[in-house]
């Protein structure tokens, strides 16, 4: 197994601890950076993320230029709290309103491309309890300090200890280890070097994000890796160890639904890439059963599998960012 990429493109957050160096690198490259937080009922954690990033990476060190929140219709105080701490808050449905409205994390990330201004965009889940500014500056580190890396992805806990005999788990979640890693192993063994492909924290150049499609839901992380890998190769990707991340745990039912979406996205991608040929379309419903007194009750989770096209196919986007419009597939 070739693990050259893992050795070369895996970083630890402490390598980027010198924030004045990062600020200088950003300045030298004449870049702007946007931080996007997609939300849906995150009132317990959103303020922390905004406050720490604003304090450390805007006020103390001029690294981030804007913080935006794209909200999927929270019913708690997420939006109000985010606004009170100075983030620009957008209702996802109000962005490009003439398009059909979808709800999902991928939808928010895609629409963030339209409303942010940065050359680099950092996407951060809004439910991180132990938030620290390393979650952002460490992702920016490889992008700002190298000329080759265009996309960086977080992982947590430590990877295989490369220079010692003993090994430790890579810290991937259940869906990663039971679904994504087996699929990568079957179809793209090189990608197994990405230790936590489903981590919700990543940063990249706009030039990349605008050229790839975004599934509107959970599949966005998987498809993003596959698309970047297929278009630009593994060498533009880096992964950064952010130590520990504490977040909400999901139950098995929710993880089952997440797995369903990821599998569907994956099958769709590998079919497009010519790795498999499905004789007929896969179904759109995930069926789970609940045991209630006297019977077993089916619960159906339906996923349409909508996907947003690359932003460069959207006229408003190309006009705003003065990019050539590319034809949709």
């Amino acid at each position: 197994m070739n693990n050259d990429w893992l050795l070369k493109n895996t970083f630890h957050h402490t390598a980027f601890r010198d924030l004045s160096r990062l600020a200088a690198a950003k300045n030298e490259k004449n870049l702007t950076i946007s931080l996007c937080l997609p939300t849906l009922n995150e009132e317990k954690t959103i303020a922390k993320e905004i406050i720490i990033m604003k304090s450390e990476l805007m006020i103390r060190f001029p690294i981030i230029d804007e913080i935006i929140v794209v909200d999927s219709g929270s019913t708690d105080n997420t939006r109000e709290i985010a606004e009170s701490y100075g983030a620009a808050v957008y209702d996802s449905s109000s962005i490009l309103p003439h398009l059909e409205n979808f709800t999902g994390k991928g939808e928010n990330l895609w629409k963030a491309l339209y409303i942010t201004h940065g050359d680099i965009i950092v996407y951060l889940d809004a439910d991180i309890k132990n938030i620290h500014h390393r979650f952002v500056y460490a992702l920016l580190g490889p992008l700002l300090t190298t000329d080759t890396i265009k996309y960086s992805k977080a992982f947590y806990d430590r990877p295989l200890t490369l220079d010692q005999q003993k090994t430790r788990p890579t810290g991937g979640g259940r869906v990663t280890e039971l679904i994504v890693r087996p699929l990568f192993s079957l179809f793209f063994p090189e990608l197994t070097q990405i230790l936590q492909p489903l981590s919700g924290e990543y940063a990249g150049y706009r030039d990349l994000f605008e050229k790839i499609p975004f599934p509107i839901g959970y599949g966005v992380e998987t498809s993003m890796i596959l698309d970047i890998y297929e278009k630009w190769g593994l060498d533009v990707i880096a992964q950064v160890d952010l130590d520990q991340r504490v977040h909400r745990n999901q139950d098995n039912k929710a993880l089952g639904q997440m797995s369903f979406v990821i599998l569907k996205t994956f099958l769709n991608r590998i079919e497009k890439l010519g790795h498999i040929e499905l004789p007929k379309p896969v179904y759109k419903e995930m069926i789970q059963y609940n045991r209630i007194p006297g019977e077993y009750q089916a619960e159906v989770f339906r996923i349409e599998g909508h996907e947003r096209p690359p932003m460069t196919t959207i006229a408003e986007y190309c006009e705003k960012f003065k990019k050539p419009l590319t034809p949709a597939d």
């Binding site: 406050i51 720490i52 604003k54 304090s55 450390e56 006020i59 132990n130 620290h132």
Partner: peptide, 15 residues
């Protein structure tokens, strides 16, 4: 006007 930095320190140390 510098509340973010004061709150950040309370958080980062208090946690």
């Amino acid at each position: 006007a510098i509340k973010e930095t004061i709150i950040s320190n309370i958080l980062l140390i208090g946690q």
